[in-house]
Amino acid sequence: MNSKNSPAPGRLTHPVDPRTVARWAARYARSRTISFLVQWVLVVFMVAAIGVAAGLTSSAYEQGNFGIFTLSIALMAVVFLAMAWFSLSQWGAELVWTITLWWYGEEGYAEAAGRQPIPGWLTALGGGLVAYHLAGAMLVSFGLLRLQWLQPFSALYMTPYLCALIVRQRLGWWAWLWPALYGIHALALLWGAPLRFPPPWRLLDLIVPVFGYGLLAILAGHLYSRYALYKLKQLTRSVAADLESAEDADQEADSPPSENAP
């Protein structure tokens, strides 16, 4: 089936500037968020595992239970190493790539222009992010940092780190929601906003903002990518109609008047 001979669904009736297609293609590609969803799950897993281990370490320290204390420290070290390996290994990158392609299925693959490879210093900062949270968990464990301040402590590193990542990767507007909301949440906590869970659930003070704002940003991007794809298909299929009328004008300008006479 040649689309030229078939009715194109949603074809626009007014002329389309072909450059608009390129702009919407870029907007669509910058909003494909499934690969981020996969990576987000891993970040959440890391923070949650470290948080649980920190809670265990803290209670073991208070109770003087050396066995659980050692075990929870070991758990934090294992999570740290696993995440570092996943972030840096070719296997981790291929897994994210394969899941992403599978998820998009028949929609295919489109990569946004202008994305630069992540430089060494940013990768190092990613490793530093893990180390920083590990240090935060240790501070909580030894009673040097109250658990309720772990989110602002986390935001101090995570917000600028995410901003650097977004600028470097030239992500869409949706990506800014994550660091912006995470940073605002931390400031709100410092100013005494009642954004806390009751004592048995204090770990959620950190986990929920990470989960919630990250997911919110990714879902916003995904929804926008649905709209951008719809718009892109509509515009792409309208380009031909506009081009044909331009071609007609071309032929009229080139042809002598007598040739157009019946």
Binding site: P18, W24, G108, T236, A240
Partner: peptide
């Protein structure tokens, strides 16, 4: 023109993406 215009806004695209977007 559709294909090239699409690719102009992207770093790269695969065959499947071009297929579904252009309707060819």
């Amino acid at each position: 023109l559709r294909i090239l215009t699409l690719l102009a806004g992207l770093e790269a695209a695969d065959f499947m993406f071009l297929l579904t977007t252009t309707g060819l």
